[in-house]
Nucleic acid binder design. Structure first.
Lengths: 360, 360
DNA sequence: CTGAAAGCGCTTACAG
DNA sequence: CTGAAAGCGCTTACAG
């Protein structure tokens, strides 16, 4: 009936021009939105059929499909996500929490997450915790209100906090970077400790006698790198106590400052492991400023292999970390879990790789 | 009635321990969620009063407020955003589109946006367009489904595209970086052209005779910097055609490569304007590699003042851009618009600043 | 300051 | 392959 009426309208006024109809529809509703009911009416079907045409096209007849597609286009229909979430109790939204957005490392991880989630049809909300537990707690609360289907978190702490705030409700989460202690909790990452150990070994093999360490930020992962590095030195019978650390953000400038302190406190230090590449770049600049030859007078190793490390002068030895893959695989694992698929390895170690270059 | 019944339950079983009640509630619903109705029942009020206690606490009596707060805590109630959006037709969500997330520039802008929106009680969805119009179109469509209250876009193109896809519906948008041509369309940014011009002027004042330009990416803003730079050279009677450009992503390594090309094609070039700091850093490394003294044999100027520019050796002359403020002010302008406040200047020029350092 | 009713725009589950 | 009914969990607008 209403379908007939509609096609009548069309032929009486202007065929193929439904612009006035759109206006009329908008005006007829308090919200001014074109809804699935409008599309259904225009296509001469029920709203359920429109819904099916959108989600499971194979369950809708060809000609109905075409009329619906035409109606959607003419009316400029956009499905209302809020209504869909409310009715289906699935949001297709994933909450993602990272410590910092100014750190390239996490941006790369987000790229991995985005690439996987986009093709899987999920959106995500990005939260920046600033390495603060209070921020974490608040963000989880805020995100919970969006009824996310799952979480991608970047520390074991966050998983614990999530569980508390869930209060019995059950939303799956994968933790990134750190590998979980339990084999059941889902996690994707690599061993920071082993990576730090590998750097120490490398410097010793190269013949440096007094390798030191510089670090800022001092978040748990930095400290694990340090632990590994110190163990590597100790295992080789070297002094593990040559180090300068500041609990401030890691910046290139901070790297320059820390190199100054290191040389002041340990004048015989001949190599330095910078706990990330920003610090390493600052250290390199400071050496250049002081006329200290790298690596002849001071070797420099970094961490993460940021874009400049390979093309600096001299190129910087560093640890290549699988941060894109961490995001990608973590997202994959989460979606598999949501789809009820079996997960091969809930604790996925992606490893790391030492890139030996001119600076050591 | 139900309130009485409830307090009866409490005193009969365990006072102050409603954990079993939470379980019962979850079990009693298909979705397993605690709703505003459950809270209302537990507090002995209507759901409207709970809603008010959450949104406009000043309109709810003290003691009702306290009982509601207690019930929320005990039941672990989290408001369902989807239901709220659907009922109120306001999502408190802003769609943000930037060209790239791997570029620090946009991350800084996002920080500004986040800082403003967070305190204003808004969430945001971040989309990365990869400088592609097709991606833009898709992202806008996807975001439209989330019924955003507004958009923060990073090009005039995007505003146009949004208007098309809106099909008459009306969602306010502010464009960032580029200043709008019309004074009515909201925009926050600065003049890329003037900034490029200023760099040219500076190099000429310093006495460089054959300044050149290197650029990659070649997006519209890069091209405006170039236009300004060329005009500056031409106005000073210099050759504006010393330039190397590649339509590939800007990376540090690309800067090194472009410097090689520049020297090959224009051996007498004595200064270079790198269209961003990544390229400048690569150019500096390449000069160091070749033993070319900066600035004596080759002056280098960058763009954006990324963190390393000030502490490189030599420190790099660059243009300080107000990218944090662009995000912050754009978000502010958008929210003001949403609140129906009057906007002082719809076209907000935040300017830029030339930082003269050792490299020129 | 508080509440009962209606509705937001979808989807689920049940019929046919 | 298609549809009528009921419901998701809030808020708006109207009463009191």
């Amino acid at each position: 009936m209403s379908a007939n009426q509609h096609s009548l309208n069309l032929s009486v006024s202007k065929p193929n021009t439904v612009a006035p109809t759109v206006k009329a529809i908008r005006a007829s509703r308090a919200t001014g939105r074109v809804t699935i009911v409008d599309v259904a009416r225009a296509a001469g079907v029920s709203s359920m059929t429109v819904s099916r045409a959108l989600k499971t096209p194979e369950r809708v007849q060809q000609d109905a499909h075409e009329r619906i597609a035409a109606a959607i286009k003419q009316l400029g229909y956009v499905p209302n996500k809020a209504a869909s979430i409310l009715a289906s109790a699935r949001s297709q939204v994933i909450g993602v929490l990272v410590p910092s957005l100014t750190n390239t490392v996490f941006i790369d991880t987000l790229s991995g997450i985005r690439d996987y989630l986009a093709q899987a049809g999920y959106q995500f909300l990005i939260g920046e915790t600033g390495y603060s537990r209070e921020q974490e707690r608040q963000l989880i609360s805020t995100y919970l209100a969006h009824a996310p289907d799952g979480f991608l978190l970047s520390s074991a702490d966050q998983c614990e906090m999530l569980r508390q705030q869930l209060n019995g409700g059950d939303i799956p989460a994968v933790s990134m970077f750190d590998l979980g202690k339990s084999k059941n909790a889902m996690s994707v990452g690599f061993s920071q400790t082993k990576a730090g150990y590998a750097v120490a070994q490398h410097l010793i093999e190269r013949g440096y006698r007094r390798p030191g360490l510089m670090s800022a930020q001092l978040d748990p992962r930095m400290m694990k790198r340090r632990d590994g590095f110190r163990k590597g030195l100790a295992d080789a019978g070297r002094d593990p106590n040559i180090e300068v650390m500041l609990p401030l953000p890691t910046t290139v400038d901070m790297g320059a400052q820390l190199l100054g302190r290191l040389l002041q406190q340990y004048p015989d230090c001949d190599a330095v492991f910078c706990c990330n590449d920003d610090l390493a770049l600052g250290a390199l600049f400071e050496c250049q400023r002081r006329g200290i030859k790298v690596p002849q007078q001071m070797a420099i190793a970094g961490f993460n292999d940021l874009s400049w490390a390979a093309c600096a002068t001299p190129s910087i030895t560093t640890v290549i970390t699988p941060r894109y893959d961490i995001g990608h695989k973590a997202a994959q694992m989460l979606i598999q879990q949501l789809n009820g698929e079996t997960i091969a390895k809930a604790r996925l170690d992606l490893g790391f790789q030492l890139a030996v270059r001119e600076s050591t």
